[in-house]
Design a binder for these strands. Structure first.
Lengths: 107, 107
DNA sequence: TAGATCAATACCTATTCAGCTATGGATTAA
DNA sequence: TTAATCCATAGCTGAATAGGTATTGATCTA
């Protein structure tokens, strides 16, 4: 139900948007122009995706004259890591429960 | 560019579908009927989502008489964990590079 | 065998959204 | 000041898809 994870998954589900985020992670801060150059889509599309990434907390922007620099905010991925850990945890618990059951049955 | 991650993100981006997967992680194997009872959507919709989850490798099905049992396949989350680790790795490397730079500047 | 139940498929509809072009606002350069 | 550049916004269109109902196939039960 957590809206945070919903936003993260939805935001990262788009390949173009995920590619932009990946580039910012790999190469660090970039201007919209630099990102557009290799994005394969038009500048307005890049701006729109960056806006969505920003709303999700995955990037931050810094204005410098007429250009805007974007950079990745890796901390925003935490809820995603938490979610996968939680799922793995449930799995593990059920496995432990099964082990306990088998142990009791063994006695 | 990896198509695997694309499939995973897209599959888990839908709240209804993610909720189904979460329930299978929490509560273990369930029939379609049991899942439908609390899914908030119709049975055909549940079946469709389960089909998509299956195609993504996130669940497996087991037929028993006229009912189908679904269970979570947690291993399928691995590429997602890998991806986040990779992003965190790039971040870390850039941080190290910065440290190195500052160190060199300091001399 | 006839009826009932379970799950999947077919088909349709409405909504969402990624992409485009055109444009505006703001800054820099000539 | 005028022209050019950078980015964001507005408006539009087409494609993808989540949801519904109707139906079929398969299995169990009376």
């Amino acid at each position: 139900m957590s809206d945070v994870q919903d936003t993260l998954f939805k935001t990262l589900a788009d390949p173009t948007r995920r590619a932009l985020f990946e580039r910012l992670c790999r190469e660090g801060e970039k201007t919209v122009g630099a990102l557009t150059a290799r994005a394969g889509v038009s500048q307005p599309v890049v701006s729109k995706h960056l806006g969505i990434l920003k709303q999700a907390g995955l990037v931050r922007d810094r204005h410098e004259g007429r250009q805007t620099h974007y950079s990745a905010q890796l901390g925003a991925l935490a809820p995603l890591v938490d979610w996968t850990s939680e799922m793995a945890g449930f799995w593990q618990n059920r496995f432990n429960d099964l082990e306990d059951l088998l142990k009791r049955m063994d006695q």
